[in-house]
């Protein structure tokens, strides 16, 4: 699974399991209930996953909501690459993936879904990307993990788990959809700094 952090060598890293498969499943279930409670059902809501991890989680959330409410929520996939704030300073351009939002976002309550909330820059880009597609009635944010260290005034409405980290650590979310066992691990990176 890709990571925003630098490559680290085997001997330098120390892995700590912070969520196992059943904790991930329970977190998704709880978020599904919270979404329904806050929005009083599924009327006028839509899920938008941020590529790549957020898309898988959005689909899981949609399935869970469907099990509870017996009705489908619209679901979309958002690639934020073109809205990154570091495009002009990066040497290599990041690989683009397709944005696919098969509904009109205007007047809907959009629930953005991502795996890890860190600096908040991805979410800022995602909000700009969404607003270019229309005028949502509301944007809410659901994340599996909030690891702190915000650089922008951004806050999640639904959080699977708060994980205190130091800036140098890396949070990895592994998901079944990518051929891994569901789990969240914390990598202590002796090699230093992330982006």
């Amino acid at each position: 699974m890709p990571t925003d952090g630098p490559m680290i060598t085997q001997d330098k890293k120390e892995e700590k399991l912070v969520m196992d498969a059943s904790e991930v499943a329970r977190a998704v279930t709880r978020i599904a209930h919270e979404v329904l409670e806050r929005n009083k059902g599924i009327r006028e809501i839509a899920l938008v996953g941020i590529r790549t991890g957020g898309v898988h989680l959005a689909h899981r959330l949609a399935r869970r909501i469907q099990e509870i409410e017996r009705a489908q929520v619209p679901i979309g996939e958002l690639d934020i690459t073109l809205y990154r704030d570091d495009l002009a300073i990066r040497k290599d351009q990041p690989v683009l993936r397709r944005t696919s939002i098969p509904f009109n976002v205007s007047d809907l309550k959009i629930i953005l879904v991502d795996d890890v909330l860190f600096t908040g820059r991805t979410i800022r880009a995602a909000m700009d990307g969404l607003i270019d597609l229309g005028r949502p009635a509301e944007i809410q944010l659901a994340v599996l993990v909030d690891r702190g260290h915000r650089q922008l005034p951004i806050k999640a409405n639904y959080i699977g788990k708060n994980i205190p980290t130091s800036r140098e650590e890396i949070v990895h979310v592994y998901l079944e959809e990518e051929g891994e066992e569901d789990r969240v691990v914390l990598l202590k990176n002796a090699g230093g700094g992330v982006r």
């Binding site: 690639d79 690459t81 073109l82 809205y83 495009l87 002009a88 690989v95 683009l96 993936r97 397709r98 944005t99 696919s100 700009d128 270019d132 597609l133 229309g134």
Partner: peptide, 21 residues
């Protein structure tokens, strides 16, 4: 493949992204 993503942008109502600002 990169052009594939931009085809989607050209199909939007607001056909503009800030990538080369």
């Amino acid at each position: 493949e990169t052009a594939d993503s931009f085809k989607e942008v050209s199909g939007r109502e607001i056909k503009k992204v800030p990538a080369l600002r």
